[in-house]
Nucleic acid binder design. Structure first.
Lengths: 232, 232
DNA sequence: GTCTATAGCAAGATAGAC
DNA sequence: GTCTATCTTGCTATAGAC
């Protein structure tokens, strides 16, 4: 009761130490089971039992089974940034930076390849708050786009001035495309996804460089106009 | 037992007349309810009750609720082709044909916009046989790609000879992108999707034309090489 | 505020009788 | 082929302990 580790009515609001520990434990257990048996085959009852808590307690921390995935999404994003940090601090070449960040993203996701399939399924649902395009996900999405802004702005790349502010979001979109491919990639170790990255980056790099060319300026503007028109 | 309508061990294998009737009735009922109330809100119990059959009977014909969607996918494909037929018979300009086929595809899907969201969610699951990329869906996918082959081959477009055989599949991929956008499109009447089509078609048309240019040949080849490498 | 235990609902899916 | 009964599981609700 009067245990020193338990504050009486502490000013600390967001994460009660004990609660945060339980929350993390439930999340870790869930992720492990998802990886071991897959998403659908892992029941909330099993997660609770394995974590040594009551079912109601799991729901106390995570509103639904899908909310566990949302945390996975946020955590992966943070890991991605951390995994790319060293390269971004050292390297200035745009293509090298982009290539490194794309590979780092896949590196983070790889241990969850089976499970990530379900993650993407959930994410594709537009009405779901878990969709990376939804308002509810705007925070992790913005963080992801910021990572690609860093790729660009920390580089020596010369980019059309009109294209520059839009490019980070376009790079993020391209990354979403890579992830979609990766999810469906059945090659050993998802080697084809790595080939996709290595092949696409030089093309993107060249396209970005060409965007400044006089002759291609009208096309650049047309593309940009289309993008602005259809953006939500 | 000796009823004339019930063949003893008939050579006819696939569709028993009566069974096919029940099957179709269940499917029609399900589609109607999906459109009226949405996918999640339509229970298998409701479908069975509305169709006047037992739940188990619905499962006898459709292995799961998701399998009802697969039929939707196949049916939509047929409707798409039919909806585009008149235009393809009349028009020879590549851009016009492509634009018409893309709009026709969205026309077919529009009455099911709410429901199609769930369809796409299901389709994004790579392990599901319902994914448009899966082996199980290869038949409808091939039919869809064939439609875009028709768009190209019935046109007067001059295309790089190396690109030509790959282009139909690339156009189908672009169409998948349009559908993905449409699913997330919350604008009234999905007007933005229509803008996307109208804006993207001229760009695609121009890119296809440019593929023959001497200077761009290396890039064309590089893109083609990448595509061939990463294809499953 | 954190957690347990238990009961119960709704709905997807299955088993076995007819 | 078709039905009824049953199972499983996501999720909720309640009541109470610390």
């Amino acid at each position: 009761m009067t245990d020193e580790t338990a504050p009486t009515t502490a000013a600390a609001e967001p994460p009660t130490p004990r609660g945060e520990q339980t929350r993390q434990h439930i999340l870790d257990t869930a992720m492990r089971l998802f990886r071991e048996r897959g998403y659908a085959q892992t029941t909330m009852r099993a997660i609770a039992k394995e974590a040594g808590v009551a079912v109601g307690n799991a729901y106390y921390y995570f509103g639904s089974k899908e909310h566990l995935i949302q945390r996975f999404y946020v955590d992966s994003q943070a890991e991605h940034r951390a995994g790319a940090a060293a390269l971004l601090a050292r390297e200035r070449d745009f293509a090298t930076r982009l290539r490194g960040v794309l590979h780092a993203g896949i590196d983070v996701l790889t241990p969850s390849h089976e499970f990530a399939a379900t993650f993407f399924k959930t994410a594709a649902e537009p009405t779901s708050p878990l969709s990376p395009f939804s308002a509810a996900s705007s925070e992790p999405r913005e963080a992801a786009i910021a990572l690609f802004r860093d790729v660009l702005e920390g580089s020596t790349a010369k980019v059309d001035e009109e294209l520059r502010p839009e490019l980070p979001e376009l790079l993020w979109l391209a990354y979403m495309g890579v992830v979609l491919y990766w999810v469906h990639d059945r090659s050993p170790g998802q080697a084809k996804t790595r080939q996709l990255i290595d092949g696409a980056v030089p093309l993107i790099d060249r396209a970005v460089g060409l965007s400044r060319l006089r002759v291609l300026r009208p096309i650049t503007r047309e593309v940009l106009h289309l993008i602005r028109t259809i953006r939500h």
